[in-house]
Design a binder for these strands. Sequence first.
DNA 1: ATGGCAGAGATTGGATCCAATCACAACCCA
DNA 2: TGGGTTGTGATTGGATCCAATCTCTGCCAT
Lengths: 218, 218
Amino acid sequence: MTEAPASTTGRILHSLRGEILSGAIGPGERLRQEDIAARLGGSRLPVREALRTLAAEGLVEIEANKGARVPVLDRDEVQTLYLMRERLEPLALATSLPRLTASDIDAAEAIQERIEAGVDVIDFLTLDRELHMLTYTGCNDEQLMATIERLWNSTQHYRRAFMESGGPGRAWVINAEHRLLLDALRQGDSEGAELHLLGHIRRTRRELSSALHLFVEE
Amino acid sequence: MTEAPASTTGRILHSLRGEILSGAIGPGERLRQEDIAARLGGSRLPVREALRTLAAEGLVEIEANKGARVPVLDRDEVQTLYLMRERLEPLALATSLPRLTASDIDAAEAIQERIEAGVDVIDFLTLDRELHMLTYTGCNDEQLMATIERLWNSTQHYRRAFMESGGPGRAWVINAEHRLLLDALRQGDSEGAELHLLGHIRRTRRELSSALHLFVEE
DNA sequence: ATGGCAGAGATTGGATCCAATCACAACCCA
DNA sequence: TGGGTTGTGATTGGATCCAATCTCTGCCAT
């Protein structure tokens, strides 16, 4: 997610995805090809290809002759995306665990310590994602990991909006879940790790779903 | 999956996807932009956009300056795709069931009767897919259904190769599983339906995994 | 005979230009 | 005054052209 590709299409794709994930381009916002081409450098052609890719990833939606915009998700859609995470991420974790090294878990714990030391909203989102992705490094299946990243990407905006509007309130819950997850991983306890991960995602889903103010119709 | 779009890009995308799913273009085969443009009508531009979309779907892989080809999956990759189906399709089924009408189930049973009446390999693949997708019609979540369709698409070649090389041998097993699934749906038994579906996908995964001749290195 | 190398043809990547469609505003008429 | 209509600017869709990279063949040297 961090490597910068050489081709123009790859570069524009990378930049656009980053702008959507960072919130610089929010849900409902329109993406004009010429604007993007001028802003990111290049002609409209690589922009169109990048938009096609983003559309297949679910990060934008393209309507024929009417252009691309960032989709506005309602509560049910975000809920389903989280239900998908609840099903797929334990699978990735179980696949990853046998190949996970002690230093992988060390790195994850270092991230957790930074989270507990106190960070702002934007840093938390980045570190939380890094931590979870680190636990999946042993899973080298492209399709599974690509699907999981898509699920994170599609819900990124709502996670950030939730955190910025006060967040979960009880930070210790997240930390306890992370610690339990990492401990289970350390012990090679696949089932335990899967259960803690499931509970972690499930609780987040429920908190997001009850934050109705995130999903007011526009 | 069957509607023919008006735009050139959409038409080419639809045709290319169909050719890959039908086996007209097999794994490892290269896709030259100019060939496709000449064959399907249009310039290379819409072809490139269609290839980008197919790449994001996992139906082709694009290497910079080297073009697109249909990916060759090994046994582990197909296995993981099926494990993903085992996780996601019961979710789609549970979401679908409350909105499923009696006539939906009637239609699915009609398909099952056609399968039992005896069909060739290609018809079976089509009907089997139609049957399962029918059971998901009540699930109107775009992302979940798109992900499931991608999983079917990515594994379509190996399913067909398996069927053509003798298949499961015991056709009654599939029919029993389908009947049990449909019966549970008829009774509104969500848990039972999920279990039968899981068993159905799981058995297919195991049979495919043990058919090593499908995955010889090239 | 075999391995490396060079060059020509093939193929992809990108830019510019033209056509088609859409959105919006001004205008006309009831 | 309000609603429909038409026309113009804005935006997207598609085609052709040029540049960059790759591939593959044939040649040369060892």
